[in-house]
Amino acid sequence: MDKPGFPPVGVIIPNFNGVHLLRRNLPFVITAAAAYPGACSIIVVDDGSGDGSAEMLRAEFPSVRVVSHETNRGFAEAIHSGVEAAEAEFLIFLNSDVRPHEDFMAPLIRHLEKTDVFSVSPLVLDEDGRVNPVSWRCYRMKRGRLRALRWNSDDLKSTVPKESLFASGGSVALRKSMFMALGGYLPLYKPFYSEDFDLGLRAWKRGWRTLLEPASRVVHERKGSISENVAADRVRKTRVRNRFLLEWTHMPGKDLMLFLVPGYLSQFIRRLLRLDVVYVKGFFAALRRLPEALRIRAEIRKHQVLDFWRIIDSIETNFKSNTDG
């Protein structure tokens, strides 16, 4: 029987040619769903797989709901199809290469009942048990680029949840209504990468926080479905392109002109000298989408209540606080 005080949860897993990942990791998701004190449903969105994923799911995991795309549409649209199909307000997105601990759900969901919390990240572990840096995100300007602050598990000197800039799209709990209000993942970043970074920033700018909950844990495999199904050059080009687009969309204009543009020029020259063709292609691919990025930038400003550096200062200060009270 479901316990009162634990709202229904929908787990959404996007899949593309990941039949072996689903067979390996889905049993852990089912165990965690059964351990959650409230109702929990699992939806796998098969994004045009050609490896028999959908057929395997229906035969071997009949309790899991399958939503199928006839053709591959990319990560964002797979998630959107799952969100549309889900009935619960509280959702958890899990990649097929993520293996959750049995008790990971409840610690995430308890935060979502706070009206200013948009999303919550579990502590992400590597297969050898080490804490993965994707668990907590914060950035500062260094050497002309926006760079992630380094940290390790020793920095979590208490079990108190910490504010984070965004949660990895591969393991995150969030509110469906807020996700929909933000417009979900933006097509600017299709087919993959940086959607979660952008989403977290757009939420923060509206005053909606993201948290890291150390009491919730998942294991992320080193090699996932993107690296197995997409050519390495295309993956890197997309990463480069989307990082430029993210900065052009979100960074304050003063920082773009004083720090990032000179940094771009310096790095571009170095990459040219090294004959880094993939980087150059990624930069020009971003330039082609600049008008769309600027349009989105203007739209974000209409709803913005917090500026970029105020958000960063809040997250860094909160992380350095070691009190348990």
Rank of each mutant, 00 (worst) to 15 (best):
residue 6 F to K: 06
residue 9 V to R: 00
residue 13 I to Y: 09
residue 13 I to K: 03
residue 13 I to P: 02
residue 13 I to F: 12
residue 15 N to W: 11
residue 16 F to S: 09
residue 19 V to H: 05
residue 21 L to C: 08
residue 22 L to R: 12
residue 23 R to D: 11
residue 27 P to W: 01
residue 28 F to S: 15
residue 36 Y to C: 02
residue 40 C to R: 02
residue 44 V to R: 05
residue 45 V to N: 01
residue 47 D to T: 08
residue 47 D to L: 09
residue 48 G to R: 08
residue 51 D to C: 12
residue 56 M to E: 14
residue 60 E to T: 15
residue 62 P to D: 08
residue 63 S to R: 11
residue 70 E to P: 02
residue 72 N to T: 13
residue 75 F to W: 10
residue 80 H to K: 05
residue 91 L to V: 03
residue 94 L to Q: 00
residue 96 S to W: 03
residue 100 P to Q: 07
residue 103 D to I: 10
residue 104 F to M: 13
residue 105 M to T: 07
residue 108 L to T: 05
residue 110 R to V: 15
residue 114 K to T: 15
residue 119 S to R: 07
residue 127 E to C: 09
residue 128 D to F: 02
residue 129 G to C: 05
residue 131 V to C: 04
residue 135 S to F: 08
residue 139 Y to A: 10
residue 139 Y to V: 14
residue 139 Y to C: 06
residue 141 M to H: 00
residue 142 K to W: 01
residue 143 R to I: 05
residue 145 R to T: 15
residue 152 N to K: 01
residue 156 L to E: 12
residue 157 K to H: 07
residue 158 S to I: 13
residue 159 T to E: 04
residue 160 V to C: 04
residue 161 P to S: 09
residue 165 L to T: 11
residue 168 S to K: 00
residue 170 G to R: 03
residue 171 S to T: 14
residue 172 V to L: 04
residue 173 A to H: 00
residue 174 L to Y: 05
residue 177 S to P: 13
residue 178 M to A: 04
residue 178 M to D: 07
residue 180 M to S: 11
residue 181 A to D: 12
residue 182 L to V: 06
residue 188 L to Y: 04
residue 190 K to I: 11
residue 195 E to I: 13
residue 195 E to T: 10
residue 199 L to D: 01
residue 203 A to L: 12
residue 204 W to E: 06
residue 207 G to W: 04
residue 207 G to P: 01
residue 210 T to Y: 06
residue 215 A to E: 14
residue 216 S to P: 07
residue 222 R to V: 12
residue 223 K to E: 09
residue 224 G to H: 07
residue 224 G to I: 04
residue 224 G to P: 02
residue 230 V to F: 15
residue 233 D to A: 03
residue 234 R to W: 07
residue 237 K to L: 13
residue 239 R to S: 14
residue 241 R to W: 07
residue 241 R to Y: 10
residue 242 N to T: 08
residue 255 D to V: 15
residue 256 L to K: 09
residue 258 L to W: 02
residue 264 Y to S: 00
residue 267 Q to K: 10
residue 273 L to D: 06
residue 274 R to C: 00
residue 276 D to Q: 03
residue 277 V to F: 08
residue 278 V to H: 02
residue 282 G to I: 12
residue 282 G to N: 04
residue 284 F to I: 13
residue 285 A to S: 13
residue 291 P to L: 03
residue 292 E to S: 04
residue 292 E to K: 12
residue 292 E to I: 14
residue 295 R to Q: 07
residue 295 R to C: 08
residue 295 R to N: 03
residue 296 I to F: 11
residue 296 I to E: 09
residue 302 K to R: 10
residue 305 V to T: 14
residue 308 F to M: 12
residue 309 W to L: 06
residue 311 I to P: 00
residue 314 S to I: 09
residue 315 I to A: 05
residue 317 T to D: 10
residue 320 K to W: 07
residue 324 D to N: 07
residue 324 D to E: 14
residue 325 G to W: 11
